[in-house]
């Protein structure tokens, strides 16, 4: 058998590879067989309405959700077999704030670096750089409670970068952030991606994905309903010139990704419902 580290060097591989992933919670099937492959260096967007399964998918990649079946590989490391190596590659900024309550934020970053193997000195230095970069240096000695919502978001992104991740995963990083900060964050992420970091971002702001992502996947009711570069998806799925633009399409710019999104998620609800009853009768 060839050790995983050697396979690494021999084959070009995907940063993240997800095969046939299924996850059911007690009262809902959140993922119904998801396949996603994200090549190294890609800026990848996962789009979907609330409850589509985005957070469940992302949490599975870092081991916070245990899938019922399927396989997850991170830089070639199978998550179940080599969790440490797989997680070492990832920095995660989750959807829900999860910052230690009373620890000064400078300490939080220092500890985070340590969890990923940085020495104390190195970690302090990197923490200082990131705090300064995210305009949090003035607040370095206070706890999470003394930060605004936007500051807490930025802190979580800074924290996700402490371990020098090859893959940065952001779950709705711009939710509740004002326009100016959002644009700053976008340019920061673009720059990071240019320098080689693979980025996986979930959002329900579609224009965000259209602007940033090389490729997007649209997820709805636990299934990927479309996947590809935004331009291709638009070309393939946009409404015909002559079709009526009422209901959900009333305020949508024709030929935008948003149009495709609504077509693929909003309009499939009925079909989805039919499909589900079919599944139930089969079972």
């Amino acid at each position: 058998m060839v050790p995983a580290t050697i396979c690494h060097l021999l084959t070009p591989m995907n940063a993240v590879e997800i095969n046939h992933l299924k996850k059911s919670y007690p009262n809902v099937a959140a993922l119904k067989g998801v396949d996603v492959a994200i090549p190294q260096g890609e800026f990848f967007g996962l789009l979907g309405p609330n409850g589509a399964g985005k957070t469940t998918l992302i949490s599975s990649i870092v081991g916070l959700v245990k899938p019922n079946s399927g396989e997850i590989r991170v830089m070639g490391f199978e998550l179940r077999k080599n969790p440490r190596e797989a997680k070492q590659q990832i920095g995660l900024s989750p959807q829900e704030i999860n910052i230690h309550n009373y620890t000064p934020i400078r300490k939080i970053l220092e500890f985070q670096g340590g969890f990923y193997g940085l020495s104390k000195k190195e970690s302090l230095k990197r923490g200082e750089e990131l705090l300064k970069h995210f305009s949090l240096w003035e607040k370095r000695n206070v706890g999470r409670y003394q930060l605004s919502g936007g500051m807490q978001r930025r802190l979580m992104i800074a924290r996700a970068l402490m371990g020098k991740p090859k893959i940065l995963i952001l779950d709705e990083p711009t939710a509740g952030i004002d326009v100016e900060l959002r644009h700053e964050l976008w340019s920061f992420l673009k720059e990071l991606n240019r320098n080689g970091t693979t980025i996986l971002l979930t959002t329900h702001y579609i224009e965000e994905a259209e602007l940033l992502c090389d490729r997007v996947a649209i997820i709805n009711h636990g299934r990927i309903v479309a996947q590809g570069p935004p331009k291709e998806l638009i070309a393939k799925h946009q409404l015909k010139k002559e079709s009526r633009r009422d209901g959900p399409f009333q305020f949508v710019r024709p030929g935008s990704l948003e149009e495709v999104f609504i077509k693929l998620t909003g309009h499939t609800i009925e079909e989805e419902a039919k499909e589900e009853t079919a599944e139930e009768t089969r079972a």
């Binding site: 870092v62 081991g63 916070l64 969790p83 440490r84 190596e85 997680k87 070492q88 990832i90 995660l92 989750p94 829900e96 704030i97 999860n98 910052i99 230690h100 309550n101 985070q112 969890f115 990923y116 193997g117 999470r144 924290r159 371990g163």
Partner: peptide, 18 residues
């Protein structure tokens, strides 16, 4: 208990620590 409460436990569980 506190780490569960403020969810920082989830951050810890996502790190490479065994």
């Amino acid at each position: 208990y506190m780490a569960k409460f403020d969810r920082s436990l989830e951050n810890l569980l996502a790190t490479p620590l065994r």
